[in-house]
């Protein structure tokens, strides 16, 4: 028998502890990404040309370079500038920045998706700028964004496995350590893969349910 069940069952608790760290990294990474995406999206709409250009350039640069190299950059270069951060925080920053650059595009598409007539109607009703955003634009722009945002967060959850490279004790890290210690890689790596598959699969299903619910609300409401 190639697959060793005793060994597999013995290592599951350790791997599950790693999963906890993975969830924490994904959670805080998502919060950061939502904020970063918003800042970039707002800067992209700035009236100041220099702000617009540099934020667009920055987001494009992030989207066109590898997450792993960005992670290395934050982990190895920041300490040279005197900023020493714990590995988990480095990982959260890398995930948040990378995903945030993509979310800025999701925000943009959502806002652009609100018909011009809505802005004009708000103007005609003499709404103030703030009221227009809060009462008219965002309530229409946000629901269509939810599936895309959800997909990027699921992607981040899977990508967070990279944090094992800077020794964050997350799911993949725990599995690799078990492999290194026991010289058996099949069981820990397979269990890790199944956990990623299972959780991302459940997340996708949940997302679809939310999507169809909100779709129905829009049709009937």
């Amino acid at each position: 028998m190639i697959w060793d069940w005793d060994f597999a069952l013995r290592i599951i608790p350790d791997i599950l502890r790693g999963l906890g760290t993975t969830v924490i990294a994904t959670f805080f990474g998502s919060l950061l990404a939502l904020a970063v995406g918003l800042v970039i999206a707002l800067a992209n709409r700035s009236d100041v040309t220099a702000v617009r250009r540099s934020s667009r350039g920055f987001a494009e640069f992030i989207r066109r370079t590898p997450l792993l190299v960005q992670l290395y950059f934050i982990y190895f270069v920041l300490p040279q500038a005197g900023i020493v951060l714990p590995p988990l925080l480095c990982g959260v920053i890398a995930l948040g920045l990378h995903t945030g650059a993509y979310l800025s595009e999701v925000y943009r598409a959502g806002i652009d998706g609100v018909p011009r007539g809505q802005w004009e109607a708000a103007r005609a009703l003499n709404y103030q700028q703030g009221q227009t955003w809060l009462k008219i634009i965002l309530p229409q722009a946000i629901p269509p964004m939810i599936p895309a945002i959800g997909n990027y967060i699921i992607l981040m959850f899977k990508d967070s496995a990279l944090l094992s490279i800077i020794a964050v004790p997350e799911l993949m890290s725990m599995s690799r350590n078990i492999g290194n210690d026991s010289y058996r890689y099949l069981e820990p790596l397979t269990i890790a893969a199944i956990l990623y598959l299972l959780l991302s699969g459940i997340a996708v299903l949940l997302l679809r349910i939310i999507e169809s619910r909100s779709g129905m609300a829009r049709l009937t409401g």
């Binding site: 190639i2 990508d159 496995a161 993949m172 492999g179 890689y185 790596l189 893969a193 990623y196």
Partner: peptide
């Protein structure tokens, strides 16, 4: 397709390089 989209490329790469030899 679902198998390859459900996990990250990094996990798949490690699995192919370190776990596949066991089978």
């Amino acid at each position: 397709v679902e198998l390859f989209r459900g996990t990250s490329c990094y996990v798949q790469l490690f699995w192919a390089f370190f776990a596949l030899p066991f089978i």
